[in-house]
Design a protein around this nucleic acid. Sequence first.
DNA 1: AAACAGGAACCAC
DNA 2: GTGGTTCCTGTT
Length: 294
Amino acid sequence: MNVIQTEEGILLQDIEHFHPGHIFECGQAFRWNWDGTGYTGVVQNKVLRIFQRGRHVLLQDASLEDYHILWKHYFDLDKDYGLIKKSLSRDRILAKAMEYGWGIRILNQDPFETLISFIISSNNGIKRIKGIIENLSKRFGEKISWKGREVFRFPKAESLAAASIEDLLSCGCGYRAPYVKKTASMVADGKLDLDRLKKCQYEEAFELLLTCSGVGPKVADCVLLFSLEKGEAFPIDVWIKRIMVALYFGREVSAKELKAFAAERFGPLAGIAQQYLFYYARERKIGQKKQRDG
DNA sequence: AAACAGGAACCAC
DNA sequence: GTGGTTCCTGTT
């Protein structure tokens, strides 16, 4: 891959293992929206439009400086996905899954945003999750002017900690409103140091995350995988459970058994394996109760 | 319009 | 530590 600056922005020339659609539609991020030609997203204080251009990817209007201090890490461009795929392709099922979702990457997102987003995700579908996060950002996040439009950052911990339950309810949080407020307070008060979790081992970070209100095993694993660089995290929700039952087990299994299976079979690559399987199964409609039209 | 989808809290045991 | 029930709201 070559990184070159053009009049349009940063062009990632001949980039491999990268496809915006795969990256943003596998359930790891909630603030990227498809508009027919590209995706637009809000990350920290930046708004980015990203396009696939044949073998290249364009980060529209991005500067070289932003690429180096933000996007490179955000899109996990230091990691060798060729190597990851080579290792995982010994598993025949994953080999197929990786053919489908060849452009998936695990994003390195902001830990606080990821924590709150996945608390909201519990007992919710992606569409509604996105709506709630947008509402929270509009109400409690800082405004960014972008191309004459108003866009809002994801709120700071302090802002959500100070929010009233009533306001959180009006954003659509439902019964998760107190979870959001309590967990935001823990972060704002320094009782939970998210930066420190990055340096912790998986197990310790997992246990610490479970002390947050609204955070159980699934949410903790999502935060660990999508924002704290813990590749061994294997989030188990109803979807991945159905998929694994359909593709690997052929019988009902407990979450505990699934987690052990993933750890043994995929080890430190369990998280990325999960993403490939999730995307593949959703595209192929494997393991779903009802078949939807596409 | 009643039923359903979706993780974690909470309370029994 | 396991099992059953409840939480909220948009969709069908």
